[in-house]
Design a protein around this nucleic acid. Structure first.
Lengths: 243, 243
DNA sequence: ATTAATCTATGACATATCCAATAGGAGAAA
DNA sequence: TTTCTCCTATTGGATATGTCATAGATTAAT
């Protein structure tokens, strides 16, 4: 039973910019259905084109690039509200893969109609560009994390960002949220070895800062976590459009 | 004496996707003038909005974020053909600063007219999104470099990418191109200390791979450089629109 | 001319992080 | 149950890279 865009549970969250009635109506037409996938499902394949574009309704996943050395760079974590497949829509092929790490529910769009969105709905085209710009900004922040932070700091800031985003999405309860990744995923995202990631996680746990076990992230000392993560004061979460 | 978009020296390079006559005509109107700046000029300021957007015609610069620790993360190098200020156009404020490191010549656009581009020229809106997606892809690659490569590899791949791009722009002559940055800039881009960057550069020079001195990058052994940089076979340069 | 400022260069030392190896736990498959 | 596989955990030793300190080279400022 597909949810109507009108009643989209994400749409009214303060994290997302509001959308006019006519835009929602177009999205309704643009949307071709919903998709539920199991953990481990590959949604997009690096180097291929995809006939479908998605918006995440529920669940999490990750974007990653496979490197020449056989290693994997996790570009970022995918959470509800994220748009998947912009590259496939606009360039010829995807430059990274996308995989579900938990069960996911996705809004499905047909990339054949991608151009009509630009032609008939400049507001939505604008939103798409906006989304892309936000993504670009977040990647810039990740770059700064990898470039200038130590192991603990990287993990702390990763936790902080995920937790903030999770809170904005209503996924946090009792300072806990579901975080369905393996330690290897986090390691690949932060440019750390698995061993070092493991040790650093143990340290954060022992120090009573944050604990991530059994797929559950628990923030024990928010202040200290924020200090370690060196969060730049005012920043906070950036509003973004939901498509 | 401003160059007409018709005769834009960049437009016909194979690096850029072709543009229809009517699009060029609109760009001509959209363009409000040209700007020449000296090395060291700050073009955009993190946290502020900018009334102007630019496309680089000549010269180089860099985008960077200032971090809480007072350090600086160079997000990327800015070369001819790059569009500056997308974030200012679409979000409220810039998330990074942009500075000229050589003399630059820029096409100037008024951000007041930004929305009219989306409204009246869906093809150009599409191109803007495309540009943003390409940028996003490149940042993903940088992330992979910082995440998984050693010092030499980082410098080698940085040289390789800049050199490839420079070649596509016709900036290479006798395996040399102008690269107007300080070692500190490169260090801040690659997440290395200045000292280590300096030593690694010396090593690449001593090994007869590449030499970067006095603002000139010279590729001595292209094959070896590519090997060290671990360039994934087919990749090559991605075509992008020029706006 | 002299001084100051900025960038590049080099050495010695400290350490965060990687790597190889091994083991335990939990769940899936048989 | 037993076996297998995947993930987490922990140790000890190796090393790439960071930090501190100093000096020469070049260019700008007085």
């Amino acid at each position: 039973m597909a949810v109507s865009c009108q009643d989209c549970p994400l749409r009214n969250l303060p994290l997302f910019t509001p959308m006019s009635q006519s835009e929602v109506a177009f999205m309704e037409k643009f949307k071709t259905g919903e998709l539920e996938v199991e953990p481990g499902t590959t949604l997009m394949m690096e180097g291929s084109n995809s006939p479908q574009l998605y918006t995440v309704l529920e669940g999490m996943g990750l974007r990653y690039k496979s490197m020449a050395s056989g290693e994997r760079q996790v570009v970022n974590m995918v959470l509800p509200g994220d748009f998947i497949g912009l590259q496939a829509g606009v360039m010829k092929e995807m430059q990274h893969s996308v995989e579900a790490t938990s069960a996911m529910k996705l809004c499905v769009f047909d990339s054949k109609n991608f151009w009509s969105l630009f032609r008939d709905h400049p507001e939505l085209a604008y939103d798409l560009t906006w989304i892309s710009a936000v993504e670009e900004h977040l990647l810039g922040e990740s770059l700064a994390v990898l470039g200038h932070m130590t192991g603990v700091q990287r993990i702390a800031s990763s936790f902080f960002r995920l937790y903030s985003r999770g809170a904005a999405l209503g996924l946090v309860k009792d300072a806990e949220m579901h975080l369905p990744y393996r330690q290897q995923d986090l390691a690949d995202a932060l440019g750390l070895s698995l061993v070092h990631t493991n040790k650093t996680l143990a340290k954060l746990r022992a120090d009573g800062v944050a604990s991530w076990q059994g797929g559950m992230l628990k923030i024990i000392d928010y202040e200290r976590l924020r200090d370690i993560a060196q969060v730049d004061g005012g920043a906070g979460l950036i509003k973004r459009p939901l498509i």
